[in-house]
Design a protein around this nucleic acid. Sequence first.
DNA 1: GATGAATGAGATTTCATTCAT
DNA 2: GATGAATGAAATCTCATTCAT
Lengths: 211, 211, 211, 211
Amino acid sequence: MAQDKSLHTKDKIFNAALKVFSEKGFSGATTSEIAREAGVAEGSIFRYYKTKKDILRGVMLEYVNRVEEFADTESMKKIIKEHKNEPIEKILKLMALNRYKIFEKYYPMNKVIFYEIQFHEDIKKIYCDKIIEKESDIVKFLFEEIGIDKEVYEDTRYQVAVRIFKSMLTGAFFQRKNELIKEAYIPIEEEIDMVIDVFFNGINHIWRVGE
Amino acid sequence: MAQDKSLHTKDKIFNAALKVFSEKGFSGATTSEIAREAGVAEGSIFRYYKTKKDILRGVMLEYVNRVEEFADTESMKKIIKEHKNEPIEKILKLMALNRYKIFEKYYPMNKVIFYEIQFHEDIKKIYCDKIIEKESDIVKFLFEEIGIDKEVYEDTRYQVAVRIFKSMLTGAFFQRKNELIKEAYIPIEEEIDMVIDVFFNGINHIWRVGE
Amino acid sequence: MAQDKSLHTKDKIFNAALKVFSEKGFSGATTSEIAREAGVAEGSIFRYYKTKKDILRGVMLEYVNRVEEFADTESMKKIIKEHKNEPIEKILKLMALNRYKIFEKYYPMNKVIFYEIQFHEDIKKIYCDKIIEKESDIVKFLFEEIGIDKEVYEDTRYQVAVRIFKSMLTGAFFQRKNELIKEAYIPIEEEIDMVIDVFFNGINHIWRVGE
Amino acid sequence: MAQDKSLHTKDKIFNAALKVFSEKGFSGATTSEIAREAGVAEGSIFRYYKTKKDILRGVMLEYVNRVEEFADTESMKKIIKEHKNEPIEKILKLMALNRYKIFEKYYPMNKVIFYEIQFHEDIKKIYCDKIIEKESDIVKFLFEEIGIDKEVYEDTRYQVAVRIFKSMLTGAFFQRKNELIKEAYIPIEEEIDMVIDVFFNGINHIWRVGE
DNA sequence: GATGAATGAGATTTCATTCAT
DNA sequence: GATGAATGAAATCTCATTCAT
């Protein structure tokens, strides 16, 4: 029982489930452990969620809501406006750092979604429909803002670039939180600096090649 | 029952477990499904593996063996020697393609390990002890072969570069096999080309900066 | 299902387990039979006892409690006080009869403990630590009360005498309940009379020898 | 595998089963452990014994044979003849010691029979039919030889005396082998001396009373 | 709303027995 | 005769879900 007394029962259950799911995986989690963690009776879970699977769906829906809330372009636009005279790399780095903070804040949720998508078609569908598209939008917006001209590259290569960019950040973020990095630990700001430098210069180089 | 009659029972169980683990996750898999998939009696599983968890350990050990077999520097050296007069990017691409083929061949195993290390400390320990070190060695060897001078960069940045490189490839490989890429599908050779171009030029650029 | 509806589930399981253990032995008993006998679902057993072996430990603990409750010297002292002017044999017989009644009342428990200490080191340890000492105390108290002078005999012979006394009663009690006595059946009171006569006169005789 | 290579397979199995039964009880023993202990394949057990239960029956039958072989009156008569001029107690003690040696030699068998009689009606029947009667005969013979006059006592009391005598020795023997005696350990000869003294003098006293 | 005891279906595991070699 | 892999029925145990209080 590690829950704030003032929270509503459903929230206590949700938070506890998120914690247990992220530590044990969905199938490895038990409703009894979730109840214990939430500090509520096991039976109470089923007042708010029809089944255990339903809690996972709840997590997914919450994730979608959170993404809608925090992944919109507002904070990005703000960053861009505040730094419009600085180099593009600088802006990219600030944005990546912002993403990392959000990633970290919602890490258990990110981890659960990331893992369970593999095994639940319905969850995967929601993810693909709602999240991937949204993520694409934001990166697209980002690229546009920093002035990468659409005519310079064909659509496919652009999307591949987006994938590469996402891989690099996702990889850096997960490795850090996974405790898989045992050596060469550097502050996240420095790692982001380096990732963006590699990506930005690499991308710039290959796109300039065709000039 | 989807198993070759000529296989030994333990192999049938291993293959079936791998398939089911990769489709359902370790906790989501049942020994009864594994047995059905293997075409053996459920009891037979426990002749070869003391517990269900033991099968997972078996997968990990097999992975370690496979990595020792395929991840050694021989095939890499061969590639390098056969292409020594070609540009470095070309060599990197050939090697990455080779890695992808191996990744694809052992995809279920890769997937199972990749996900389950999150939840099993003992599995994670083996992974860290045996695999990460080995992977580091090979990438290190690779970097040395292509003549990146050790004095140019500090050790930490080098290791971060390795992490970036791994993230890029791992990300590209998993996204492809995960069926998360719905659009902008391009042949793996092209994707690798692009990833390596970005990485190689990006890295080259930032390391030349200090010159 | 042979259980009183008003009993708490744990007691129903305990009683049923005791019955089945005493009829089949611990290893020969199945949790499904215990559940059937208790009139509860098999799963309910594991709410109250982590494992089947735990039920046996529960029986042992209950035995220890019961012994603490009934094997104290109070009832013995009461018997002695109420009959202080009667011959010692008379007192011994009354006490032995009292022991038999308790033995009979808790026969299944006695039987289970008696047999299972052979096979379970942990159970045996509890038995040795808690019961044997207590039994020694009570017999010692008894001997002292009836005025057997400590100086007359050495400590070792005294303890052997205690063992002999216990063997005689235990043997008589178990043979009776085991249905191994097919002939020469006599009421327990008469058998106790004879056992005590043999023991008392025999002991008296050998201890007088040294006078 | 603790078996003499020269033994026939059936004997190896028998000996191993005896050992495992006596350590774990019949139900707690597994055929796989018996096979391992015997140094034979598990399947071989079922060439010689139709079922696991059949091994237990084999143990019982062997016990019966052994008792017929060793519990006959010949060795007793020999003892009596060789010591006919010594006191009766002396003869009784020699005989009890002889019984103890045999008890000890066949301890595992004794233990198995003693325990399993409780749980197997068929085994119990054989025991009652073959062993108890035989034991009665031998004690009867013994009593007659030492000149206890049949007319002195009624038949029932005589049989009860036999039961008492058996209890005393069985109790002493089992306590010793069970490792339940932690203190007041004395050599078996001394314990037998004391047991016989108590019994003999006790019995003598109560039977002389009626004179 | 909240509880937690009870359930029972199903998961893991054991093991006596069979049988092809 | 001997082997030991394979079996499958049954044992132990787990856990999501229900329901009376």
